[in-house]
Amino acid sequence: MNLLLYFGAKVLGALAMLVVGAGVVFLLMHAVPGDAAMAALGDAASPDAVASFRAEHHLNDPLAQQFWDWARAALTGDLGKSISLAGGFSTSALIAGSLPNTLFVGGFALVIAIAISLVAGSIAASRHGRMEDVLATSGAIVTISMPDFWLGYMLVLVFSLGLGWFPAYGFVRPSESLAGAFHSGFLPALAIAVPMAGIFSRMLRTTLLETFRRAYVVSAHAMGFGRSFIFWHYVFRNALIPYVTAIGLQARYLLGGVVVIERVFGVPGVGSVMVDAAFARDYGVVQGCAVVFLVIVIATNLLVDALCGLLDPRRAA
């Protein structure tokens, strides 16, 4: 019951955060200098055309009214129409077409980063102060220092232009061919994952080292349990909580990286849509994309809270 209450409160908080966040995005996009009607129709538009455009898109309504209308439509999945693309594509259709690609590359990157960091962090901590530790720790700080998009081009240089193993540009949608998506998504995912793995493994190493020193671990040693038994039964699970929290906190950096990496590899994801819309000054689409990213980060944080609650039931008590 306590657990349910704990999650319920978290979900309510997340929803409130989402509403306020959407409001902030809405206000930001409406505070942008320049008139949306002028941006859509061009500077040479006649006053009549501008007036009818404003009326058609309800631009003369009070801001609160506009936000309410927009939010209500957004809840039914309607995020308005693009003003820059011919034919007025709906924003929802643009996002529905691109979101799976972003989630695929982002999720793929997350899995790679977690896999690398679990191995590297555990080895570094259990071989503390020795060769393996020094190697893992220096590797981590070097990878953290590389801009991810530059790393992307270096990977292209080696694995596409040099060895020809992976495509340098372009992305096969997971709905078309899953194998193709893994193949074409590997380099972008790796470019995002490597610096992430550096951050994650440093985090894991620190928390593992701290846990090694806890009294219950020392007493387990004194009772004569084997090293690997102690590691898996006493240390690892307790060290996982800060590790999972750290991963959750990195969600905003991870998705930030996705935005730039999508441009490098030509992945048609939400980030690409958003940057294109920003260039075209298509504020409705930028707004829709920003809210989608907001939803992803908030959902991730909720998931992390749930995981931490499961790992450490005391939190919900």
């Binding site: 955060m17 966040g21 995005v25 930001l28 996009m29 942008v32 969600a251 905003r252 950096y253 991870l254 998705l255 930030g256 990286g257 996705v258 935005v259 730039v260 980030g271 958003m274 940057v275 920003a278 000054r281 504020y283 930028v286 994309c289 920003a290 990213f293 907001l294 980060v297 908030i298 944080n301």
Partner: peptide
């Protein structure tokens, strides 16, 4: 709750 570049991009606009 905002991805870094998303926040930056809105600010740029």
């Amino acid at each position: 709750s905002f991805p870094t570049y998303v926040l930056a991009l809105c600010l740029m606009l």
